[in-house]
């Protein structure tokens, strides 16, 4: 099957019932973290045509013809979020971080100037068991400001 993976045309041959998360990890994309594998924790979040998806709940076959982006994809919004997450320490163990950053990226694309509450709501699809939420929220607001400044 063909898809655009991190902005490159790619041909993959997943098994019919292969999860997208497994397919992507097999490509060496370790930023696709798998934890709960039932769509609850958000660690395996990737962007499909710009929208966040928990890739453990999606068949690889569903991604045919779409544009799939992971944390490994070069992107200015991802970079701004990464920098803000580092500065605000929006993580502890780091396992959930890529999922938060990608969800935040999709959210900021639609909501460039969010309120704090909007950010907290928008990121509730991921679990940070370490409890870095307030720092994650600050990081997203900081990245939003820097992206607005850059735009």
């Amino acid at each position: 099957m063909r898809l655009t993976l991190n902005r490159r045309e790619t041909e993959l041959t997943p098994a019919p019932l292969e999860r997208l998360s497994d397919t992507l990890r097999a490509q060496g994309l370790t930023g696709v973290r798998v934890s709960c594998s039932e769509g609850e924790c958000g660690s395996c979040t990737v962007l499909i045509d710009g929208r966040p998806v928990t890739s453990c709940l999606m068949l690889a076959a569903q991604a045919e013809g779409t544009s799939v982006e992971t944390i490994e994809c070069d992107d200015p919004a991802t970079a701004a979020l990464q920098q803000a997450f580092i500065e605000e320490q929006g993580f502890q163990c780091g396992f959930c971080t890529a999922g938060f950053i990608l969800t935040a990226r999709a959210f900021l694309a639609r909501t460039p100037d969010p309120s704090e509450d909007e950010v907290r709501e928008a990121l509730s699809g991921s679990i940070c068991r370490c409890g870095a939420y307030p720092f994650i929220t600050r990081a997203v607001l900081k990245a939003a400001a820097s992206l607005r400044g850059a735009a």
Binding site: E40, D117, R120, S124, G131, Y133, T137
Partner: peptide, 18 residues
């Protein structure tokens, strides 16, 4: 034995004012 019925707090469950 999973997050479906073992509920942990998410970002909107903890106050913004912290």
């Amino acid at each position: 034995d999973g997050f479906l019925d073992y509920k942990v707090l998410r970002s909107a469950d903890f106050p913004a004012r912290t």
